[in-house]
Write a protein that binds this DNA or RNA. Structure first.
Length: 575
DNA sequence: GCCGTTTTCGGCCCGACTGTTTTCAGTCG
C-alpha cells in the first residue's frame, strides 16, 4: 500500500467521522496524518524499517497502528466498522458545494437520503425545505451545486492558470479605485495544479470594485457578493474569488489569501503564543487593538519572523525554520547556467540547432545540450544512430560560430524501451556529450516491472540523467507506478542526476521527491525540454518546483559553472 | 487523535458570507 493510498484511506475516515459527528479535532488529526504521508518522500513501508511511524509529524500511536494494520493486511477493521455505520455513498453528497458534514448528516438521518441521486430528487420534490434550517433558497442552491458538480472542470496546470491570473490582475489594476492588485492562493505559491483563482486588491471603494467584478462580461454566475469578498464563475467553469481591504491593510490580506490554509493555521498558533490574534484584518493584541500591515514583510516581522517565500508556505517546517534562521536559500532563475534538455529540427523540435543556441545565449545561458529523441520514438521523428554523425558536424559548426564562451553539447534523449533496453547501443551512447534516458511508452506496467526496467537503465554507465521520471502528464494522467525508494537509491549509487522537467504539464520529479532526492545528495537537473526558443522560458516552472522542494542552488546541476558541469560529465566517463 | 521551553491533560485559528433565523449555524478558504 502506497502513501497515497494510505492518505486517501485516512481522508475517507476523516470525512466519515465528520458526518458521524465526531469531535472535529479527531477529524483534523486524520487529515493532518494524510497530508504528512503525502509529503513524506519515502514509502511508509520502507520508513518503518528504520524508524517507528509515530516519529512522523502528525502521526501518533493510534494512527501508526492503523498504518501498520493497513500495510500488513491491506485492510483496516476500524474503517470497516465505520463504513457499516455511515453509508460511504454519503461522501459523494459531501462533494456538493455548500453542503458540508452537518447538512449531509441532516439529510441522511432525517430524510433517509444516502446518495447524490436521492438528494437531487428530494430537492426537486421540495422535500428538503421541510428540514430544519433549510428553506427554498438552500434547496435551489443544492440543485445548482449538483449541476456545478456535473460540469466541474478539472484542476488547471500552472501553465494555464498563470496567464489567466496575470490577465485578471491587469484588469484589476486598471480599475479606478484599485491601488494594488495581485493573484494569491495556490497560484502564487506555484502549486503544480490550480483549482480556483484567488485575487486580492487594495482599494478604497470596495463596493464599486465588487460591482465591477461581478458584472464583468465574462461572468456567467455570481456565487457570492459581499463587502470584502466576492466570488464569480466564468463560462469555462473557472471560479474566481476577489478579496479587498483598504491599502493600509493590504499586507495582512495578501498574506491571508496566499495561504496555504495549513500555513495560516500554524502562523496563527504562533501569533497566539505571543499574545496576538492574526486574521486578514491584521494583528489584534490582548487589549483588543487592531494593528494593520500594508505589506507582508512588516507582518512577518511583527511576529519576529523573516518574510517567508510563498512557495514554502505549506506547513512543512517553514515557520520553525524561519524562527531559527534556517530558511533555505531558494533558487533564482538567473542562477541557472545551462539548459541540458532541448530538441531541434533533427527530431520533433521546431527550430534549428543554431536558432536554439542563439535563443539560449540570449537568455543568459552559457551551455545548451541538444538532446533529440532516439529512433524508436517514431512519433517524435527520432534520430537513427547513423544520423548522429551528421548532427555532430552541424553542432561543431554552430559551436565555432558561437565562440568559446558558449558551450554546445551533443546529447540524446534516448528512449527506454518496454523491456528496459535502450534505443542506442552503448558504443553510440559513449560518443555523445550527455545522455538523458526517458520513459515515454508502456507506462502502465505493474510496479515491479516498470521499476526493474528503470533500474536496469540506471546501471548503464553511459546514462547521465533520467528525464521526467514518472512520465506523468498534468492535470490528469498519472505517471508510472515506480518504487521510488529503489529508484532514488539507484540514482545515488550510480551517481546519476534526476531531472525536474520544467514543462508545466510535467513538473516531474515532483516537489516531494525533489526534496527527498536533494536531501540524499542526488544532483537535480532542471530542464525545459524545449522544442522551441519560447519553451526555454518555461524554466520558471521548473525553478518553482525546486523552490517548493527547499532545494538550494548547489544541489542543481544547471546552477554549477560550465567547468563544474563539464567536470561532472568527465567524471562519468565523458570526453 | 496529537502534542508539550507555559501543559503528559487540556488545549487545538479566524472571519466573511449566506440563509435561516430574530441571534445563529453551517460552509468556506
Amino acid at each position: 500500500m502506497t502513501n497515497e493510498e494510505l492518505a486517501r484511506t485516512f481522508e475517507k475516515i476523516a470525512d466519515l467521522l465528520e458526518i458521524k459527528g465526531e469531535v472535529i479535532y479527531v477529524v483534523l488529526a486524520y487529515r493532518r496524518a494524510a497530508e504528512s504521508l503525502r509529503i513524506l518522500g519515502q514509502e511508509a513501508d520502507v520508513y518503518r524499517t528504520s524508524q517507528p511511524l509515530n516519529t512522523i509529524p502528525g502521526i501518533g500511536k493510534a494512527i501508526a497502528e492503523k498504518i501498520i494494520e493497513l500495510l500488513d493486511t491491506g485492510k483496516l477493521g476500524f474503517l470497516e466498522k465505520l463504513e457499516a455505520e455511515v453509508p460511504v455513498s454519503l461522501l459523494e453528497i459531501l462533494e456538493v458545494p455548500d453542503v458540508g458534514p452537518k447538512k449531509v448528516a441532516l439529510f441522511w438521518k432525517q430524510a433517509g437520503i444516502t446518495t447524490l441521486a436521492d438528494l437531487e430528487i428530494a430537492a426537486q420534490e421540495h422535500r428538503l425545505r421541510q428540514l430544519p434550517g433549510m428553506g427554498e433558497k438552500s434547496e435551489q442552491r443544492i440543485l445548482e451545486g449538483i449541476a456545478a458538480l456535473r460540469r466541474r472542470s478539472h484542476r488547471m496546470t500552472l501553465g494555464v492558470a498563470r496567464p489567466i491570473g496575470l490577465r485578471w490582475v491587469e484588469w484589476l489594476q486598471a480599475q479606478p479605485c484599485v491601488q494594488q492588485a495581485e493573484f494569491a492562493g495556490s497560484l502564487r505559491r506555484w502549486r503544480s495544479t490550480i483549482g480556483d483563482l484567488d485575487l486580492v486588491a487594495a482599494c478604497d471603494d470596495s463596493a464599486a470594485l465588487m460591482a465591477a467584478f461581478t458584472s464583468h462580461p465574462e461572468v456567467v454566475r455570481v456565487l457570492g457578493q459581499g463587502e470584502n469578498k466576492s466570488s464569480i464563475e466564468l463560462s469555462n467553469g473557472l471560479k474566481l474569488q476577489l478579496w479587498t481591504q483598504p491599502p493600509e491593510n493590504f499586507g495582512s490580506l495578501f498574506q491571508f489569501v496566499s495561504g496555504s490554509k495549513e500555513h495560516n493555521v500554524r502562523l496563527r498558533e504562533f501569533a497566539l503564543k505571543q499574545g496576538w490574534s492574526l486574521s486578514e484584518r491584521g494583528l489584534t493584541g490582548t487589549d483588543g487593538k487592531l494593528v494593520t500591515y500594508s505589506d507582508e514583510e512588516s507582518l512577518y516581522k511583527a511576529l519576529g519572523l523573516p518574510w517567508i517565500a510563498p512557495e514554502l508556505r505549506e506547513d512543512r517546517g517553514e515557520i520553525q525554520a524561519a524562527q531559527t534562521g534556517d530558511l533555505p536559500a531558494l533558487l533564482k532563475i538567473d542562477q541557472l547556467q545551462a539548459e541540458l534538455h532541448s530538441h531541434s529540427t533533427w527530431s520533433d523540435g521546431v527550430n534549428t540547432i543554431r536558432e536554439m543556441a542563439l535563443a539560449a545565449r540570449q537568455r543568459g545561458l552559457k551551455m545548451l545540450a541538444i538532446t533529440d529523441h532516439s529512433a524508436s520514438l517514431g512519433i517524435a521523428g527520432g534520430l537513427k544512430a547513423e544520423d548522429l554523425l551528421r548532427q555532430r558536424a552541424e553542432i561543431d559548426l554552430v559551436q565555432k560560430e558561437m565562440g568559446s564562451d558558449f558551450r554546445l553539447l551533443q546529447g540524446t534523449e534516448v528512449e527506454i524501451k518496454a523491456d528496459g533496453s535502450l534505443d542506442y547501443p552503448d558504443e553510440v551512447l559513449a560518443q555523445l556529450d550527455i545522455v538523458i534516458a526517458s520513459l515515454h511508452v508502456s507506462l502502465r506496467q505493474p510496479r515491479p516491472e516498470v521499476t526493474a526496467r528503470l533500474l536496469k537503465v540506471m546501471q548503464n554507465p553511459h546514462v547521465d540523467i533520467i528525464g521526467h521520471l514518472t512520465g506523468r502528464l498534468l492535470p490528469n494522467r498519472e505517471g508510472a507506478d515506480l518504487d521510488m525508494d529503489s529508484v532514488l537509491k539507484a540514482a545515488l549509487e550510480n551517481g546519476l542526476a534526476l531531472e525536474i522537467n520544467a514543462n508545466p504539464a510535467r513538473l516531474d520529479l515532483d516537489e516531494v521527491y525533489s526534496r527527498r532526492a536533494a536531501e540524499m545528495g542526488i544532483p537535480l537537473s532542471i530542464n525545459t525540454d524545449a522544442h522551441s526558443p519560447a519553451d526555454l522560458d518555461l524554466i520558471e516552472y521548473g525553478v518553482s518546483v525546486a523552490r517548493r522542494a527547499w532545494v538550494e542552488p548547489e544541489a542543481v546541476l544547471n546552477c554549477w559553472s560550465v567547468e563544474k558541469i563539464t567536470a561532472w560529465l568527465q567524471s562519468r566517463g565523458r570526453n
